[in-house]
Amino acid sequence: MTLHATLDAGRLVLTQGRLTLREQLPAESALLADGKPGGLTWIDGVPGDGTMSAASMTVAAAAAGVYRPGWGLFAIQRTQDLTALGGVGFHGPPDRGAVEIGYDLCVSARGGGWATDAARAVCQWALSQPEVVVVLATTEPGNAPSQAVLERVGFERVANRGDLWSYELTTMPV
């Protein structure tokens, strides 16, 4: 399925079938970090803990002057009604060819393949950027659902990073 990348009011929007990923700029991320809806309609009323944490990372990057548009948090939305289901994004801009992703779904959105679709879309977009050669991800050893997401996207498990299992993706499976 084709991934469409557009700009909407200065934010990157990635659309692929049922999925829309809408970049959350630092101002919206500040609201999400505080557990507020940030102008979005959330399936469970508010963003999940992981999305709030990721929003805090975007706010911190902006405060430190290292925020780069396109390399932060995206709201995971259903294309049909733009209901926000969770968050996906990057831990920061590319560094020596590598970016790291993370994702989080609201409780009511789990089990429907949304995290897999969102992770696949951000990886596809990232690997199409000339400064990215590898996408990284980590999970806690007991987080089987997250590990399954990474495996479905095509990540391969590599050496552990401390207490976390590490994964890498260098090409998108056909």
Rank of each mutant, 00 (worst) to 15 (best):
G65V: 05
N143E: 08
A109P: 10
H91V: 13
Q124L: 09
L82D: 14
G113N: 07
A84P: 10
W114A: 12
G142H: 12
W71K: 04
V122F: 00
L136N: 14
G65D: 01
L136P: 07
D163R: 15
N160P: 13
P69R: 12
A126S: 04
R120K: 09
G142M: 12
V153I: 06
L127F: 09
F90C: 03
S128W: 01
E151D: 06
T83S: 11
Y103G: 08
G72H: 06
D104I: 08
G92T: 10
A137H: 05
P141D: 03
A109I: 06
N143H: 13
R78P: 12
A148K: 08
H91W: 05
E131Q: 04
A64F: 02
A115E: 10
F74C: 08
Y103P: 00
W165K: 15
G97L: 10
R110P: 05
V158T: 15
R152D: 07
Y67I: 12
Y67Q: 02
L105G: 03
A137L: 02
G111S: 01
L136H: 14
R120Y: 04
G72P: 07
P69Q: 15
P130E: 11
R157V: 01
V132P: 04
L85P: 00
N160D: 15
R157L: 02
V149A: 11
W125T: 07
R161F: 10
L82Y: 04
D104C: 09
A137I: 06
T138G: 02
A64R: 12
D104V: 09
E140H: 15
L85E: 00
L82Q: 15
R78A: 13
P141W: 01
V133P: 00
H91G: 14
W125G: 10
F74I: 09
D163P: 08
D95A: 13
N160I: 02
A148H: 10
R78V: 09
D117Y: 05
L85C: 11
V132A: 08
V88H: 07
Y67G: 03
Q129C: 13
G86V: 02
Y167K: 04
P145I: 08
W114N: 04
G86E: 00
P145S: 09
S108G: 05
A63W: 00
G112P: 00
A62F: 01
P69H: 12
V132K: 08
P69M: 05
L85W: 11
A75C: 02
L127Y: 09
A148T: 13
V135P: 10
L85D: 01
V158W: 11
L150F: 01
